[in-house]
């Protein structure tokens, strides 16, 4: 059996965009969002549709930055936090792009990028999009309590980001602008049973999956944390980050110097009551599109590991006393046309 790492030859992310809600705009990445809506409704009637509107907007911005339209995209891998990916399909309706709905809870961002890179291995696919978003209000309604319910949140609880990110990928030769970033390799995550059944401690539920993916990717690629400018996790939050360090250090690996978590980038702790941090598919997608990819374009980053972390759960499964299974797919992004997995082109 070959190694679990899948190298990708000559694949670039050539355009991207991020959209967010009011709290995301107040946060540190606020100024870098392409669009935000104070009301959180994005012109839609319900929170569920707002999630889709937001995803559609993110895709619209990513397309217009590259001067493209929906018909220029061969297919899109897209998903959100709602049952049957209804937000995504509604949001994508106006574009008419062939769509594959994906669901990896909060890991959807990396999952979509990974699948897009694989799809570009086929000559039939010219440009591929990865799209994801999450909406706080829709997620609360689906997974937790009514919005107006007055209760306290646990200190380990995370806040589902109202945000969406869109990414357009193609092969080098089809890139409309100079190649700034390469998606050089990826690894599919393994579902790991965390044993955690507390819905307000998602960080703890996802940390084992993140630890497994990081350790496996580093050892399989014979690289060390020092070989990366950053090792970025999706939404472990404070608590998940603490547990990730503990799990990895028990296995003789320290990533404290390189590690960043998107869940800790989205909000400003000094003015926002963030508890353990942000979560949701939109969290890592917005952080990647508004923070990390622009840093590659500016030449500030050369190589990062990016893994969105998903906590696969539903209210029913938790009420039935089952634990939350975590999953963490990984991609490696490198500056320009560098590719340490296939050699530079």
């Amino acid at each position: 059996m070959p190694s679990r790492i899948m190298p990708h030859r000559g694949i670039t992310v050539f355009s991207y965009a991020a959209v967010g809600g009011k709290e995301e705009h107040i946060g540190p990445l606020g100024a870098k969002l392409d669009f935000h809506d104070e009301s959180g409704l994005f012109g839609a009637k319900t929170w569920e549709l707002a999630e889709g509107e937001m995803e559609g907007l993110a895709l619209e911005f990513a397309l217009s930055k590259a001067d493209l339209k929906g018909s220029d995209i061969s297919l899109v891998f897209a998903g959100d936090l709602q049952n049957q990916c209804t937000a995504t399909t509604h949001g994508l309706l106006p574009f008419g792009i062939p769509t594959l709905g994906i669901y990896g809870a909060c890991s959807t961002c990396t999952e979509g990028l990974l699948l897009a890179a694989l799809a570009l291995g086929s000559p039939a696919v010219l440009r591929c999009a990865a799209l994801t978003g999450s909406h706080f209000c829709a997620a609360e309604r689906q997974f937790r309590l009514p919005l107006e319910y007055g209760g306290q949140r646990s200190p380990t609880a995370q806040w589902t980001a109202t945000a969406a990110g869109a990414f357009l990928l193609c092969r080098y030769e089809d890139a409309p602008s100079p190649v700034r970033v390469t998606l050089s390799a990826s690894m599919v995550g393994k579902p790991i049973d965390s044993g955690v059944s507390d819905a307000s401690n998602m960080g703890a539920a996802m940390a084992p999956a993140a630890a497994d993916s990081i350790l496996t990717f580093l050892s399989e690629s014979d690289t060390a944390p020092e070989d990366y400018d950053a090792i970025v996790t999706g939404d472990l939050g404070k608590e998940g980050t603490r547990l990730l360090y503990r799990l990895l250090e028990e296995n003789g690996l320290c990533i404290r110097k390189q590690h960043t978590d998107c869940g800790l980038l989205l909000y400003d702790e000094a003015i926002q009551d963030i508890h353990a941090g942000a979560s949701g598919c939109g969290c890592s997608a917005a952080a990647l599109a508004a923070h990390f990819l622009p840093a590659f374009a500016e030449g500030k980053l050369q190589k990062i590991l990016f893994l969105s972390t998903g906590a696969l759960m539903s209210p029913s499964i938790l009420e039935q006393g089952q634990s939350i299974v975590g999953i963490a797919p990984v991609i490696c992004l490198e500056g320009g046309k560098q590719n340490s997995f296939c050699g530079a082109d």
Binding site: F136, C137, L147, I274
Partner: peptide, 16 residues
Amino acid sequence: FGYLAALLSRGKPKRL
């Protein structure tokens, strides 16, 4: 009162 509240108001996003 719950029903009246539902008729007269709509959900607002929660603040962080």
